[in-house]
């Protein structure tokens, strides 16, 4: 236990200086085999000092299904409602998740996430790969997503980006689990509390997540409220 804690702490410290992520969600390295998922996510930003972020909303709707026990695909439609602009659907994304190790088999659980995103508003393509890792200590779970993305297009400067998302949660009960989340990328620095839970509806499940992430650099909105509903069937 003490050795595991040391490794995770060292791992977080080691990655942090490199990491520069839009506040989104933290992915777990597991594939829900033989399941389908319908998911809605939203992000609301609040910052009186940054007019381009104040009131910004991001909404996404996705459908996921597992093709094998280790492999799943998810397709997203993403809409944005910038301050003083109209609501528009401009981004489409495809994600493939591959579960590398069986849960609990090794020191930590590992997975890979590949993503391809097309933003028509910015005429931008983005491709990336994320290493997903999770470690359990009794009722505590620690998760890290480390991503390398490449974005290119006529509306942006072509570049590589590195992203770190992490979460530590306490598995108090299926209905409610408190967590702390950290988001870092080249512009974003945010940390804050989140609540997660699962409601069972017969053989199906409704998962929810609500987080308030506070920006701690000048370029991240002061408050970022994220909400997620995921229906698993």
């Amino acid at each position: 236990m003490r050795r595991d804690s040391f490794y995770l702490f060292f791992f977080l410290l080691y990655l942090s200086p490199l990491a520069y992520a839009e506040i989104d969600k933290v992915y777990h390295p597991y594939v829900e085999a033989y399941k389908k998922e319908l998911e809605y996510r939203t992000l609301y930003k609040n910052d009186n000092n940054q007019s381009h972020l104040d009131g910004l909303q991001v909404h996404s709707l996705s459908f996921a299904m597992s093709l094998t026990e280790q492999f799943s695909l998810e397709a997203y439609v993403i809409a944005r409602n910038p301050p003083m602009d109209r609501f528009s659907v401009s981004t489409f994304e495809l994600e493939a998740k591959y579960q590398l190790t069986e849960q609990g088999e090794y020191w930590a659980d590992w997975g890979l996430l590949f993503e391809l995103e097309r933003d028509t508003a910015l005429n931008k393509w983005e491709g990336g790969v994320s290493l997903l890792s999770e470690k359990q200590w009794g009722r505590w779970n620690g998760t890290i997503n480390f991503s390398i993305d490449y974005e290119y297009g006529s509306g942006i400067q072509d570049e590589f980006e590195t992203v770190l998302h992490s979460q530590i949660k306490y598995r108090a009960s299926p209905l409610i689990e408190p967590a702390i989340e950290l988001y870092m990328d080249e512009e974003t620095r945010g940390i804050g509390p989140a609540l997660l839970g699962t409601v069972r509806t017969g053989h199906n499940k409704l998962k929810w997540e609500l987080g308030v992430i506070f920006g701690f650099n000048g370029r991240t909105a002061n408050e970022n409220v994220r909400f997620l509903l995921d229906y698993e069937f």
Binding site: Y7, F11, E105, Y106, W107, A108, W110
Partner: peptide, 9 residues
């Protein structure tokens, strides 16, 4: 880290 994991298995 993977190498550490294999020791445990």
């Amino acid at each position: 880290l993977f190498a550490q994991a294999n020791n445990i298995s």
